[in-house]
Design a protein around this nucleic acid. Structure first.
Lengths: 216, 216
DNA sequence: AGGAAGTATAAGGGATGCCTTATGATCTGC
DNA sequence: GCAGATCATAAGGCATCCCTTATACTTCCT
């Protein structure tokens, strides 16, 4: 459900929109991405179905609370990368902007939060855009790194190996799900999912290493 | 031609292979990725067609010189990211390994080379794997950042917006192509391609910002 | 040498995210 | 109020990279 392009669209909507709750016309997105209006529309419908945006026919899209939060987090990651690339690696800011556009999708919040710490919590990107604060104490942790008893919410699967994604989807271990760790052994993690009938789930060690959660 | 998965496969072959020129059996790749042997075989055929590997039926795959270079560069990027994540951001090395697996695809060589410089040119990753040296003085530059007269080789398109990729493919501005910059203006870059009949190509500023080259 | 196990290859499918073409619906300006 | 522009939506396509099923071919071991 959290496909590749979702974040990119949310980020574009976040940046392109103007005033208050004014919906952003799809034509603007079409121009921004250089895609056909039909493609934009198709994608927007998926975002609407997924609860990321509200689509107002003939008027445009607005971000839902969920979409807004996701876009803000994306922008934060983007601007922190920009700062790092320009300040620490001496990369010109226009190149940094492009590179940050790739990096913002690749690394979990954990990395950019540490990056912020590393740089002394900067509050603006190289060309002045404010860096949104981290919301919830978003310490993303690897499922493997937790002990029995821990309660957490799945935030991310990474790396997103398709085979892994399929296995994980089959067990409904999707982002947002709440779980409690029953046991950690060398080879597997036993987990109980909230609101699920099954008594417990066994996740092999290699899979558990790719599941990222946020402690509750 | 340089699809998403190519690097991942090359990297896996590079890491999994054992002795000298011994071909790596496809079954190993199937196990490594958790994909069906048929899928692996399909992908390997594409890599063979693309000149990245040599496929020896019933024996396995070997990397071509080109594939080898690409895999080595990938491993270098991977290990430099690992070092940075563990050393500078204090991320445990097992998590760092997973994150580096995403970052290695996201950032151009320029970033990891600067990262190496920033860290004092480390020569091993956190768990001891040697970091291959940068090959050619691979200073990737943005096409936009060069002046008229410069000669360069296209190395990368980033970010890889599909619309952009299509436009660029149409003009045959693919990685590897040699070009000379005729003029830079506010709005476009005029470029001559080696071995091409057309007198010159006009690349709009926004496209030129996503074209990365290596000076000759 | 023959049979089991492993490998190759063809054929057809699915999801994603883009495309085009085509038909209506709605909005806007005169 | 109507025409022309814009927008919505359906339908069919394409590329990528994975899947399964099924058949044929090779290798290896007894």
């Amino acid at each position: 459900m959290l496909q590749d392009r979702v974040e990119e669209y949310l980020g574009a909507i976040y940046r392109l929109r103007t005033g208050e709750g004014e919906p952003l016309p799809l034509s603007q997105l079409a121009e921004y991405f250089g895609f056909s209006p039909v493609s934009i529309h198709e994608m927007i419908r998926k975002l609407d179905d997924g609860g990321w945006v509200d689509f107002h026919p003939y008027r445009g899209v607005t971000l839902t609370e969920r979409g807004e939060a996701s876009a803000r987090a994306l922008l934060r990651r983007h601007r922190l990368w920009e700062r790092f690339l320009t300040d620490s690696l001496n990369i010109p800011w226009d190149e940094a902007h492009l590179i940050a556009g790739d990096l913002e999708h690749a690394a979990p919040e954990l990395v950019t939060d540490r990056l912020a710490e590393f740089m002394g919590e900067p509050d603006a990107c190289p060309h002045g855009g404010p860096i949104p604060p981290a919301l919830q104490s978003s310490e993303e942790r690897c499922l493997r790194s937790l002990g029995a008893g821990a309660e957490a919410r799945v935030t991310r699967i990474s790396p997103e190996t398709p085979a892994l994604l399929r296995r994980i989807a089959k067990q409904d271990l999707i982002p947002g799900r709440l779980l409690r760790i029953l046991a950690q052994t060398e080879t597997e993690t036993r987990v109980h999912l909230q609101d699920m009938p099954e008594p417990a789930l066994s996740i092999p060690e290699t899979d558990a290493q790719a599941i990222w959660v946020e402690l509750m």
